[in-house]
Amino acid sequence: MLTIKRFASIPCGTDLTALYRATVGDYPKFFKMDTACKLGFLLAEQLADEPRFTPREDRAVLMFSTCGSLCNDRHYEETVREFPSPSLFVYTLPNIITGEIAIRNKYEGETSAYVMERFDPETFVALVEQAFQDSVTASALCGWVDCRADDDYTAFAFLVERGGNGKEFNVDNLYGTVNQ
């Protein structure tokens, strides 16, 4: 059985730079990230285990959204007319959020990014369960980071583990936790 070890969310309108300065502060690469990556990064910081930064192959990272990297794609497009910005270009991939989280935390398990038509808890839960079908994955950081614009987003994430004492990770508890 999969259980919810921890849950984190970032309300829309949060000053992400202030949150970074208050809770992290020592990872300048944060400033390079687009808003979606900042959200994923800050969620992962809130869900991280101690001791930090121990390489682990048994943790997967799964991120879901409807927008993918669309918000940053627009910023990049604005630069194309004059000088296409390489530093923005690198964030024009939805799966860069999982990459940033994996690099920072040394999570060496499977990473995947899904772009859905809408928030679909059944599919969300099914895909997370699927990530545990191998013999290695013991936990997964899975989140919904839907960045429609820099000031319009939905962002929450779960740390889900095999076994554990938390609530079962299923559709009802996903809904219940998110809507608390």
């Binding site: 992400l16 730079t17 970074y20 990872y27 300048p28 690469k29 400033f31 390079k32 910023h75 910005s85 390489p86 530093s87 923005l88 270009f89 690198v90």
Partner: peptide, 30 residues
């Protein structure tokens, strides 16, 4: 130029390396 959104000049040490994890965290793309 690098879209370091939210960063201020005070965050950048004059002598810190620009590249790698020790300093500003820039990479070859930058």
């Amino acid at each position: 130029a690098l879209n370091l959104d939210g960063m201020t000049p005070a965050d950048i040490d004059d002598h810190a390396p620009l590249f790698g994890d020790e300093g500003l965290g820039l990479d070859s793309i930058d």
